[in-house]
Write a protein that binds this DNA or RNA. Structure first.
Lengths: 204, 204
DNA sequence: TCCACTTTTAACCATTCGGTTGAAACCTCA
DNA sequence: TGAGGTTTCAACCGAATGGTTAAAAGTGGA
């Protein structure tokens, strides 16, 4: 018998691929190997399913980010870790699902984002902002707008994590040139994103 | 009588707010002040409506970007212009709608993106990549991965353009701190994004 | 005025979706 | 064996949705 976690995993994938509106309850129940009535009995309606899927995917990342605030004193190393949290995950699929859901939510103005999930996002943002602010206070970083630094890190990272299919389609319709640089490993991508950001905000 | 352009404008807003699946034909027709049958008579079904809306919003940006390739020899100035094209637009709403649609499409793996629109996106990417490559060849930029530079620019810019509602919600639930740095004008945001990227890729 | 084109009106259809229900089956543990 | 919780099954509901159409009404120019 599938556990709640199994169901949430399937639901997360569905929400990432199709969005909240596009995901189908029947489909999720069927793919999780559970009856629709069971899903309602165990978890509840679509809203509850979404909220729990979000907390499940956001929670561990936030916890890791906040642990880094006290465990990693070096601000550059800490920013690198935060970049990895965004681009990479327990596995790459996990990270790309996370990014897809977040991008959709941001595009929708967080209108369907449950309050609990929004609070978690806010804490991640706070972790990045605090790290940048520490770096500025230590004289390591330029007096950069920490919120824009957050945008740069999250934007580059999540966009890269999620847009592999788009890259593939673009590469297909523009043949002739070498496309190797478009397909990096998640680790390389996270490192290069962090490098670029750090070069951009480090004091000369 | 509303013109086709009026209808496309309403449709673009609807697609940006709700996504392709979420947008309702009846709603678009009603808000455009035109009958649904007229919409079908003049433009066609939902697919045609989406394709034309995309071309309308992408076309001018691509044209401007490709003009810059020959008109602006200075690679840094050119990159700044490309950043502005992403963050800012004819008006700010226009830019944020563009960004919202693009983010949704990227999150969906460009699965519903018409081929014509995808080709336009590819040309924008090519413009950024070529500019970065020129800068590298001139010895101005580090040998950066041009595709990642594209991610950084597009990611930061579009994320910022679109997430004003999210910032507002986050600011609301985390009171007490100053939030001024979270709300920049589009011009300031575009400039700071470009600054960060240029500092990140410029040779020391 | 007549004609071709455009727009509206209003209905229709087949499909889909989230959610519910009630009865039957199953399982576990005492 | 029996009771209580869990799961399945299949059908159903009501509301929307995308798409289409036939006929009437309106429009402007030759």
């Amino acid at each position: 018998m599938p556990t709640d976690d199994d169901i949430l995993d399937v639901a997360t994938r569905a929400f990432a691929e199709k969005g909240f509106d596009g995901a189908r309850i029947d489909d999720i129940a069927h793919r999780a190997g559970v009856n629709k009535a069971t899903l309602y009995y165990r978890i509840g309606g679509k809203d509850a399913l979404y909220a729990r899927a979000m907390e499940r995917i956001l929670g561990p990342k936030i916890a890791r980010a906040e642990r880094a605030l006290v465990e990693i004193p070096d601000v550059e190393a800490r920013l690198r870790l935060l970049a990895r949290l965004l681009v990479d995950g327990a596995d790459h699929e996990h990270a790309s699902r996370f990014a897809a859901i977040m991008l959709r939510e941001i595009a929708a103005g967080a209108s369907t984002l449950p309050d609990t999930a929004l609070a978690l996002m806010g804490r991640f943002l706070a972790a990045i902002e605090r790290t940048v602010a520490e770096g500025v206070a230590q004289g390591i970083f330029r007096p950069i707008n920490p919120f824009l630094a957050h945008m740069a890190l999250v934007g580059s990272g999540m966009l890269y994590a999620v847009n592999e299919p788009v890259r593939r389609r673009i590469a297909d319709i523009a043949p002739g040139q070498s496309k190797d640089h478009m397909f990096l490993s998640p680790e390389d991508a996270a490192r290069q994103v962090a490098d670029m950001l750090l070069n951009g905000i480090r004091k000369p």
